[in-house]
Simulated scan of single mutants.
Amino acid sequence: MKNISLPENQTYCVASFEDLVSTPFHGEMNAISWTRELRGDFSEIVHKLELKENITVVSQENLFELELTKEGQLAREILLNDMKLLKAHGASPTLNLIKYYEMDDTYPFFPTDVYSFHVDRSPIPTDTFLCTYYGEASEILQNSQAEQKVLVPEIREQLKKLFQGSDEKFESFLSEHFFDLHYQAKTNANLINLGIGHLWRLAVDHPESKTLPCIHRAPKEKTGEKRLLLIC
């Protein structure tokens, strides 16, 4: 698999936050990017923040407490403004400083952590917003180049052995344990890197959705390098 430029049929680029939140998903298009080249030194913020756990939630107060150079201050203003815009839109943004995510080894043949390609699901209409300001960027996978893991015969057989219940309740079992949210890339599939500084809106699986949910995953972090990620 390799990283490529954005396919026009699935992704769409806009030039403002207003267009990001108002452009409707339709057809195969399920990922919209507010494409930006950000000013400021985000690495300064990352290195001055205290990482208390593998993932530390960074509050606005944490950002205000940092003594920063002019470039660091520019980066802080962008972070605060992005959170302000998303809150005004009705979202609940969280800024995370990430060393690494916990990996799921409950079922070695079927990890369900965020490093696995997956879609988000909600009982109400909503979208996923995310932006990587520093570190490795998130990735998405074209729906046409992915297959739902629960439909892969070998994996499905192992899940049935794990379930050991009636066929009528098997699908409910898959949903209750979130197995049906996970995908794997087809042979020679092309990964789409979301890049640094771009604020993305991804389609979610919900009852009123008019497009397929966007398949995405967290990247494997580089050794010793943290990520600064805004997500909601």
Results as ranks from 00 to 15, higher is better:
112 T>K: 11
58 V>N: 06
36 R>C: 07
158 Q>F: 00
221 E>Y: 00
116 S>Q: 15
3 N>V: 14
82 D>L: 01
130 L>C: 05
22 S>Y: 01
141 L>M: 13
156 R>Y: 00
161 K>Y: 13
12 Y>S: 02
101 Y>Q: 11
215 I>N: 03
69 T>R: 07
102 E>S: 09
114 V>F: 08
153 P>W: 09
88 A>T: 04
52 K>Q: 14
172 S>T: 12
199 L>K: 12
163 F>R: 05
31 A>T: 09
203 A>D: 08
123 P>L: 05
231 I>G: 00
139 E>I: 03
131 C>N: 09
172 S>W: 02
7 P>R: 02
77 E>W: 07
185 A>K: 10
14 V>S: 09
7 P>S: 02
87 K>L: 06
204 V>G: 04
55 I>A: 08
36 R>K: 13
57 V>P: 02
118 H>Y: 10
217 R>T: 00
92 S>Y: 08
187 T>F: 04
32 I>C: 10
8 E>I: 10
60 Q>M: 01
110 F>W: 01
83 M>Y: 02
207 P>N: 05
37 E>G: 04
179 F>P: 02
123 P>F: 07
111 P>Y: 05
115 Y>A: 01
98 I>E: 03
116 S>N: 13
70 K>S: 15
82 D>N: 12
120 D>R: 04
134 Y>W: 14
220 K>S: 12
171 E>S: 13
38 L>V: 07
28 E>L: 12
207 P>M: 03
110 F>Y: 13
33 S>F: 13
111 P>L: 05
58 V>Q: 07
120 D>M: 03
72 G>N: 11
215 I>F: 02
211 T>C: 14
152 V>I: 14
2 K>V: 11
122 S>R: 01
31 A>G: 14
231 I>F: 08
84 K>W: 04
187 T>I: 08
104 D>F: 12
213 P>Y: 04
75 A>V: 03
184 Q>I: 11
68 L>Y: 04
83 M>A: 02
136 E>D: 06
158 Q>N: 06
215 I>S: 02
213 P>E: 01
127 D>N: 15
170 F>P: 07
48 K>P: 05
134 Y>P: 01
18 E>T: 10
130 L>A: 10
127 D>C: 10
10 Q>H: 09
149 K>C: 11
168 E>R: 12
99 K>A: 11
221 E>I: 01
50 E>D: 13
203 A>V: 07
171 E>P: 00
232 C>G: 10
86 L>S: 09
97 L>S: 09
101 Y>D: 07
1 M>W: 08
18 E>A: 12
170 F>Q: 05
109 F>Y: 15
182 H>A: 06
103 M>K: 15
183 Y>F: 15
187 T>S: 11
48 K>M: 03
154 E>Q: 14
85 L>I: 01
20 L>P: 03
116 S>R: 15
209 S>N: 09
66 L>V: 12
116 S>E: 15
5 S>M: 08
33 S>H: 05
197 G>E: 08
185 A>P: 03
214 C>M: 08
225 E>D: 10
142 Q>D: 13
167 D>E: 15
204 V>F: 04
46 V>G: 08
17 F>L: 07
129 F>A: 06
171 E>G: 00
140 I>H: 06
118 H>M: 06
132 T>D: 12
30 N>Q: 07
53 E>R: 15
87 K>E: 12
